[in-house]
């Protein structure tokens, strides 16, 4: 083996070109697990369908044709790939637009719940004492309600509508964020970097925003993925009960509810929205599970968390 300056230089060159690639691969490796790839693909498909619904939908999802009702899926051989429903609407178009609503509702619910839950959790844990007591009592009271029943009560009281539905779903979904955040904040408030910030004269608000909240984000992201899945299921359940968004907005839950009456004669009405809910929730759960494996230090150390 030669050890000339030239060979040393070339080795250094190789090392310098190889190192960044290795870091990137190293960083990427945990994300290349089957469940993350599968879950991510399904979520990407949901986002793709939802965002591009107006472009990729062959028909207006609300246009009815009473002369063309309950047509079976025609696949590539006819005008309606997945068939038509009981008032002659194109099911494929409604599936695409349904993805949009599922995405909007689930995304909004997760964001609002996250902001409320993480915020209150951080305050509760950081201040501890009386503040913590009152916030946790509130958490316990709201947590005592069965989630679907609470949502039904909110909708029954305020009426139907997209924002009311979101509010009904948020009503209890902020609690898991709050509980986890509070636990972490209780631990973080005694850490050296918080003491250091405090001794430098930083106010509580600044400490919470600059030092506590950033450390709560990873856990919040994991909770968010699972919350997204449950929000989609809850929206579908409420729409199934006729308590979701108004009927002119296509959702998978309401499509499933409409299709229930035709399950033995026109199976395609219920099957396709049912499959969409199934695969979306599966995708989000796989992704959430994968993210938890990556972010959970205990799983990292033990070497588990492989897909």
């Amino acid at each position: 083996m030669t050890n000339s300056p030239a060979s040393q230089a070339s080795r250094a060159e190789v090392t310098s070109t190889q190192t960044p690639v290795s870091d990137f691969r190293k960083a990427l490796r945990p994300w290349l697990k089957p469940k993350i790839i599968m879950g991510g693909s399904l979520v990407f498909l949901l986002i793709f369908m939802g965002v591009l619904a107006p472009i990729i939908s062959p028909y207006d999802p609300n246009v009815q044709n009473l002369g063309n009702t309950l047509k079976a899926p025609q696949w590539l051989e006819g005008a309606h790939f997945l068939g038509t429903d009981h008032v002659g609407r194109d099911i494929l178009s409604r599936i695409f637009y349904g993805a949009r609503i599922s995405l909007v509702i689930a995304g909004t619910v997760v964001v609002i719940s996250g902001v409320i839950g993480v915020g209150l959790g951080a305050i509760s844990g950081y201040f501890a004492g009386r503040t913590d007591f009152f916030i946790q009592k509130l958490v316990e009271v709201i947590w005592a309600f069965p989630p679907l029943l609470l949502a039904i009560a909110v909708i029954a009281f305020f009426g139907q509508g997209l924002w009311i539905l979101i509010a009904a779903l948020v009503a209890q979904r902020w609690i898991p964020y709050c509980r986890v955040s509070r636990g972490q904040a209780l631990s973080l408030r005694t850490r050296d970097f918080v003491d250091a910030a405090r001794s430098l004269g930083a106010r509580d608000t600044r400490i919470i925003i600059k030092h506590i909240l950033p450390n709560l984000m990873q856990a919040a992201m994991v909770i968010g993925t699972f919350a997204m899945a449950t929000a989609i299921i809850s929206e579908a359940s409420l729409s199934f009960l006729g308590l979701g968004v108004p009927p002119e907005i296509p959702t998978w839950g309401s499509m499933l509810a409409d299709g229930r009456a035709y399950i033995s004669t026109s199976w395609w009405l219920a099957l396709f929205p049912g499959l969409c809910i199934f695969f979306t929730v599966l995708g989000i759960n796989l992704l959430g599970d994968g993210m938890r494996d990556i972010f959970d230090p205990r799983l990292k150390r033990s070497g588990s968390g492989v897909g």
Partner: peptide
């Protein structure tokens, strides 16, 4: 018309 579908008892 904005269609509302409340449950029957409501």
């Amino acid at each position: 018309a904005k269609l509302m579908t409340p449950e029957w008892s409501t």
